[in-house]
Amino acid sequence: MVAAIVGSLVAFVIALLIGGLAIYVSARVIADVDDYGHAVVTAFLGAVAWALTAWIPLIGPLIALVAWIGVINWRYRGGWGTAALIGLVAWLSALVILFALNTILGLGIGAFGVPGA
């Protein structure tokens, strides 16, 4: 039981760090912000916003996407367009990072805080 809890906690932390890395890369390129800790917190808050809204029938995923971009908009300067661009590049970055980790190392992990990755 304890091993399962520890394993789940380690998987969560790794996925959060990967999601944070994707947002960090994106924010570095798009908004010229060089703060990995800020990106990890953004990934966590974005995942919470997604979880609180994605369950709504029919339009939940759309509301969740707007909420996730809203968190990015709140955490980074530049407005909604910049936030959407940060989100898009973060998603692409997460896909590349996960492809490399899962193909080369065979880890089978995801990215917490980046929807669809």
Rank of each mutant, 00 (worst) to 15 (best):
L9S: 09
L9V: 11
L9G: 13
L9A: 12
V10F: 15
V10W: 08
A11F: 05
A11S: 12
F12R: 03
F12P: 01
F12Y: 13
F12E: 01
V13A: 14
V13C: 13
V13P: 02
V13G: 04
I14K: 10
I14M: 08
I14Q: 07
A15V: 02
A15N: 08
A15E: 02
A15R: 03
A15H: 06
L17V: 05
L17G: 08
L17W: 13
L17F: 15
L17R: 07
I18N: 08
I18G: 06
I18K: 11
I18V: 15
G19A: 05
G20R: 00
G20A: 10
G20N: 01
G20C: 05
L21C: 09
L21R: 00
L21S: 11
L21H: 04
L21G: 01
A22I: 05
A22E: 04
A22K: 02
A22G: 14
A22C: 10
A22F: 10
A22V: 05
I23G: 03
I23N: 01
I23F: 08
I23H: 05
I23V: 13
Y24T: 02
Y24S: 08
Y24G: 04
Y24K: 12
Y24I: 07
Y24Q: 00
V25W: 13
V25G: 06
S26T: 07
S26K: 03
A27R: 00
A27Q: 10
A27L: 07
A27M: 14
A27T: 12
A27E: 05
R28K: 14
R28G: 13
R28A: 10
R28P: 10
R28N: 10
R28D: 11
V29G: 00
V29F: 15
V29E: 03
V29M: 13
I30Q: 01
I30S: 03
I30M: 12
I30G: 00
I30A: 08
I30Y: 05
A31E: 12
A31K: 13
A31H: 13
A31F: 15
A31S: 07
A31Q: 12
A31T: 07
A31N: 11
A31M: 15
D32G: 14
V33G: 06
V33H: 14
D34F: 14
D34R: 11
D34A: 08
D35A: 14
D35V: 02
D35E: 11
D35I: 09
D35K: 12
Y36F: 15
Y36C: 06
Y36P: 03
G37P: 08
G37Y: 13
G37R: 08
G37D: 10
H38Y: 13
H38K: 15
H38P: 01
H38S: 10
A39G: 05
A39K: 00
A39C: 09
V40M: 03
V40H: 01
V40F: 03
V41A: 11
V41C: 07
V41D: 00
T42D: 09
T42Y: 06
A43L: 09
A43K: 01
A43C: 06
A43E: 00
A43I: 05
F44I: 03
F44Q: 08
F44H: 02
F44E: 02
F44M: 11
L45C: 01
L45E: 06
L45A: 09
G46W: 06
G46Q: 01
G46Y: 04
G46H: 02
G46S: 12
A47Y: 04
A47V: 09
A47T: 07
A47E: 12
A47K: 00
A47L: 07
V48K: 06
A49L: 08
A49M: 04
